[in-house]
């Protein structure tokens, strides 16, 4: 089953505010491995080769926090969405 099809099953109450920030895109440019593009279970992070930056699809964030641990440069500023927003599990 494709990840996109799985993510389609998740219920979100999407905030207009982005709760994820890349501290410094220049750091991503130097980062060879870009583990954030693989370690995030929802593939929130994607390398935009044209813009030469990490694109962040915060709307699909499952709020596990792995990106924060996985970024070797501590370059991902991840926090919780505002109260009541973000993922809302159906089963848990």
């Amino acid at each position: 089953m494709k990840l996109d099809d799985k993510l389609y099953l998740v219920r979100f109450n999407t905030d207009k505010l982005n709760h994820i920030k890349i501290a410094d895109q220049a750091v991503c440019l130097k980062c060879q491995d870009k583990p954030c593009t693989r370690i995030c279970p929802a593939h929130v992070y994607d390398w935009d080769d044209e813009e030469k930056r990490i694109a962040v699809g915060y709307e699909g964030c499952l709020e596990c926090g792995t990106c924060r641990v996985g970024c070797p440069y501590g370059n991902i500023l991840w926090g919780y969405p505002r109260g009541g927003f973000g993922v809302s599990w159906k089963n848990g």
Binding site: K6, L9, V10, A42, C64, G65, T66, W89, K90, N91
Partner: peptide
């Protein structure tokens, strides 16, 4: 049938 996909640390 898959009903939900979840993630956790």
């Amino acid at each position: 049938e898959t009903k939900e996909y979840l993630a956790h640390m």
